[in-house]
Amino acid sequence: MSELLRRYGHTLTWTFVALTAFWLLVLVILPQLYLLEESFRLYLPLADIGGPRDVYTLANYRSAFEQPMEWKFWLPFASKPVILPIEAPIRVQVFVHTLLYSTVTTVITLVLCYPVAYYLAKVANPKNVPLLFVGLLVPMWVSEILRAFAWFIILAFKGPLNMALVNIGVIDSPIRWMTGFNSVTFGLVYVYLLFMLLPIYSAIQSLDTNQIEAAKDLGAPGWRTHWRVIIPHSKPGIASGCVMVFMLAAGSILVPTLLASTQSRWFTEIIQQAMFESQDWNTGSAYAFMLLVTCTVFVILAMRVFRVKLSDIAR
């Protein structure tokens, strides 16, 4: 603090502190607290607010576990759901699917991004890397809505992708891409790719190239060099990429709405319905907090399993 004061003087320092505090308190913490409080109250007609029926209750949270029904479970890339022999509340079903396909999205982006990040960081001629990055970034200048919608057109049953594949003879008849969670996963992978690529790229880039050469010189084939030297070094980058993509995917509303099939409901859509279609902010915020808490717990558990420390990600 004294360092900041010395460097920027009183006016500038306190202005920035005040702005940051305003952002954090007024724009982040207060709305959250408001919603948290609302989530424990019932959705009441205006006249009843403040009256005897306006009490703190867990009813909104409980409502997520109501309406049990047949569990249609969609496995990744399946064209038909599996009917599970148990009944489950509809919102729990949606929630499980959301977590599962956020995870699938994370795994696919990781598998796609690691080789690209490695190529950009260690293989590509450094002269070409800025150009390659521009190529990767240019699509991100277009809004997420438009990009998701573009995929809606591309993946349509009579869309350009099917047409191209049929015409070059890869497939005989058009494929219905937008079934189950396929198109949603596809869209999420596309939209959040860079959030995986960049942290892994910078992690691999910080690795001393001599380490890679040392491993090779000691006789290691490529895969072992990756497994023993490059991946352990870039683990913090991989972890923060995974956490970001997972959280963004689980919290995404645009892509699951635009690229939805008739079957793919995302938990954020349930929140959106509660808040904007039913105007029931109390239930909506209760569900939003359930999503937040469960995703956080899920990420912490995943970090435990893969032995990643929080300090690694913060780096």
């Binding site: 001393d208 001599n210 380490q211 050469e213 040392a214 491993a215 010189d217 000691l218 023993r228 030297v229």
Partner: peptide, 10 residues
């Protein structure tokens, strides 16, 4: 076997 200038230990 090469010994690097910065050793490049893992």
């Amino acid at each position: 076997a090469l010994i690097f200038q910065n050793l490049a230990l893992f």
